[in-house]
Amino acid sequence: MIFFDNVSKIYSHNSAAVRNVTLRIEPKEFVSLVGASGAGKTTLLKLLLREEDSTEGTIFLDGLDVTALTRDELHHVRRRIGTVFQDYKLLPTKTAAENVAFAMEAAGRTDAEIDEDVPQVLDLVGLADKMDNFPHQLSGGEKQRVAIARALVNRPDVLLGDEPTGNLDSVNTGEIVKLLKKINQLGTTVILATHDKQVINTLDKRVIVLDQGEIVSDNAKGTYQA
C-alpha cells in the first residue's frame, strides 16, 4: 500500500508543485494521475522515488516511511519500485540485455538469476530478438519496452510510469498501455502519470485528476476530459 499523508512540495512560498496531497493506493491497483503540464503528476512520482524531497508530510510504502530515508538507504526503496520515464533513461553504453541486467546486478542478484530472468523479461516485452542492440539501434517504442523490462526485472511491488507514452506514436502508445495492463494483471501496482486522454479513456481504471498541485477529483472508474 502507498500512502501520501498530507504531502506538499513547495519551491518558493508562492509556487507549490504539490499541495496538501493525501492519497491512498492499494496493492495491485492501476491508478492514472492526470492533469495538465505542471499539475504536479511528475513531482508526486519523484517524491515517492525520493528523487525530490517533500517539504511537508510523509509518504509510506508498505509501512516504510520513504521521507525518513537517508541518501544511502534510498536504493532499497528504489529496488521495490520500477520506474519508466518519458525519455526512457537507458544507459547508452549498454545493450538492451545489459540495461536490464544492470538493475539486477545493482540489486545484488546472482549471475544465474540474471542469465535466467533477463531473456524472460525481454521476451515478455517482445524484444527477445533485440537483446544485444544498443539503445541508439532501437526505435522509441522499443527503447520504452527495454525500460519497462528493466523496471520489471526485480519484480517490484510498484511500477511508476512518468508519461511513458509521451514520446511515442499512437500504435506504440497502444502497445505500451497494453503491456502496463498485463503487468498490472500479473499483480504489480501501476501508477501512470499522463496527460493523454486517449490512454486514460481506454484504460477504464481509477483516475486521479491534479490541478496546480492539488487533487481535484478521484474516481474509481474515471475518464479525463481536459
Binding site: L49, E51, D72, L74, H75, R78, R79, T83, K89, L90, L91, F102, A103, A106, A107, R150, A151, N154
Partner: peptide, 8 residues
C-alpha cells in the same frame, strides 16, 4: 539513471 534504478 543508475541511482534511479536502485544502484547504491
Amino acid at each position: 539513471i543508475m541511482r534511479l534504478v536502485g544502484a547504491s
